[in-house]
Design a protein around this nucleic acid. Structure first.
Lengths: 338, 338
DNA sequence: AACTGATTTGCATTCGTATGCATTAAAGAG
DNA sequence: CTCTTTAATGCATACGAATGCAAATCAGTT
């Protein structure tokens, strides 16, 4: 029933040595004749090389670890899909680990990944300690942070131009005539959250418009919604809110419209960040700064595979600018709409 | 730099044999004394067993292959997360493969999975050929279909009670006084799509209400939206539409409200299937049949691990009933709202 | 036909861990 | 204190494929 076909079986049937079979399947040199014989025998037996055994000897498992935190944010499933496909195209495969929330359970996860001899690790919006960075480095495992940067530790990272993105939103609001502007920020423990907020403040400052208020939305629906309630309960409520990512922006729009009975964008303009597919759906039609997913994935794969191929290639921080996608959730300044 | 620590290194430092080290880490019998020595030496060197080498000899890779098709439907990221966590808790890990759309590329994917020596495979909403089923069987790899059934091939599957769910919706519509009822069905090439439609038609028939029209929405936003347009362009447009899953239902609501300027549920009631998180967001507030994700995942893991532990355990088809979650997208019959 | 150089091929070993078997140490019985 | 039983340990081998090395085959040259 459970017929394990090994290279030796193929060798016997094809009347060649096991080495010959190995060479045929690993693309090493072999004569036309043997290749034909081996192929025929392999097909007959349904032989396929055992990736694990191959990994043992070559030291290359052709597996990449992917650690993801927020799978309820539509951005990450999409990223996962693209990353998986891109890596598959390069002959790598993805071992997925969930780092559900708690930062402290990322350590055992990385250990397990290393036990599986992954050749590299992608952290999607997960921060890691310098200790862990050190361990990966000394194990010779390249690491790339996706959609999150981290200073100090010499780690490669791929992000969008978050500061610039924040600034674009500020300019958009100001151009739209908004003067009571608030920010429900991405988690301030993350570089993306900080950078978007920083750029936004810079943009407002440059325009001479004060920031009415800023609340950390923690990348959570609940936190964002209560932030929205706090903001709108003020005596001088904002007429424009920049929300740190789309996932929170949807929550904010829900609260503004259903709970507070306000109109978006007539009463309040809302802008998000990420431009996930859902942002374009009519129920939200969210104006948002696009994270150029394809190029981010491309850069991630390039960086990772580059470091795998050349172990002591220096870490690189890639930052990719994305445009503001204008939809209906925020007042559109004159001249922005073509 | 790349310091590979093997059990032999630990053995030397602890002054015991390599076997002793192996036994300590695989939980086999060993004296208190050696356990202590080995543990100490291992900690000092930072040793961890190589999962791949271990897999080679035991034949158990502790990896499960997961094949997913639609990652833009929120149901699947959630399923992925739950499955991954549940399997992690059992010491297994998930190798993810995308079966993006095309049915014919699922075959090479399964081959690759088998090359990695996965111990079992979960197909999430992916159908497989009898040929492929045969190959997995003869390779001794248990297979579970998640959220899809398939007749004929003796495959285990875990689904919700789709026929029953469809019937519930029919009864709900009828109780709500609807008489012009249509169905934008899930892909009729899938058991879930067929069963939901079947149950829905049965329910209507039992109530003596005719089905106005039924169109296959193919589980795609675009197809569902054009189906909605077709339905509403009739001279006798429906006043209630059962949509084969939430993902399509959102698209239908977008079209009804934004494009056709209709009110949901005043002009048309809409009910979906899955009860994904997004269904509860205020922008949609979609009435939907819940798929009991937790129990489905639990059943999937149980079935899979059961078959792994006991290779010739017969396949089982698990079907779990889920309730209709009543929200605001459909007219609520008297007495349903408590 | 004999010799040189280039390919092929097979042999033997290796990767890191688990495990059957034989051996030794410890523990219990009398 | 000896004999038996049980537990602990080490030795050697196995898992399945890749690869350095040497032997063998082939092609090409004169």
């Amino acid at each position: 029933m459970v017929e394990k076909v090994t290279s030796l079986d193929v060798a016997r049937l094809a009347k060649v040595s096991q080495s010959a079979v190995s060479r045929v399947f690993s693309g090493a040199s072999a004569s036309k004749a043997t290749i034909a014989k081996v192929r025929a025998a392999a097909d007959q037996l349904g032989y396929r090389p055992n990736t694990l055994a191959r990994a043992m000897i070559t030291g290359k498992s052709r597996m990449i670890g992917l650690v993801v935190a927020y799978l309820d944010n539509q951005f990450y499933p999409v990223a996962l899909e693209r990353l998986s496909n891109a890596l598959q195209a390069e002959g790598y495969h993805v071992l997925v680990f969930m780092a559900s929330n708690a930062t402290d359970n990322v350590e055992p996860i990385v250990q397990e990944l290393m036990d599986y001899q992954v050749e590299g690790i992608v952290f999607a919006s997960v921060s890691i300690s310098s200790d862990l960075t050190e361990r990966c480095a000394s194990a010779g495992i390249p690491v790339v942070l996706f959609n999150r940067g981290q200073d100090g530790l010499g780690l490669s990272s791929v992000t969008s131009a978050n500061i610039d993105g924040g600034r674009q939103v500020a300019e958009f609001f100001v151009a739209g005539g908004h003067r009571r502007i608030a920010h429900i920020a991405g988690w301030q423990g993350s570089s993306t959250g900080r950078d978007r907020a920083l750029g936004f403040r810079q943009g407002l400052k440059a325009a001479g418009v004060p920031l009415l208020a800023e609340i950390d939305g923690m990348y959570s629906r609940e936190a964002a919604q209560s932030a929205a309630r706090v903001l709108m309960a003020r005596s001088d409520p904002p007429d424009a809110i920049f929300v740190g990512n789309d996932h929170m922006a949807f929550a904010v729009m829900d609260t503004l419209r259903s709970e507070l009975g306000l109109s978006v964008p007539n009463d309040v303009s809302v802008v998000g960040y990420d431009d996930v597919p859902l942002a374009s759906w009519d129920a939200y039609s969210l104006t948002s700064v696009r994270q150029p997913m394809n190029r981010m994935v491309e850069a991630t794969v390039d960086t990772l595979l580059g470091q795998i191929a050349d172990r002591d290639r220096p870490a690189q921080k890639v930052e990719i600018a994305g445009p503001l996608i204008v939809r209906a959730s925020a007042r559109i300044p004159e001249g922005w709409k073509t």
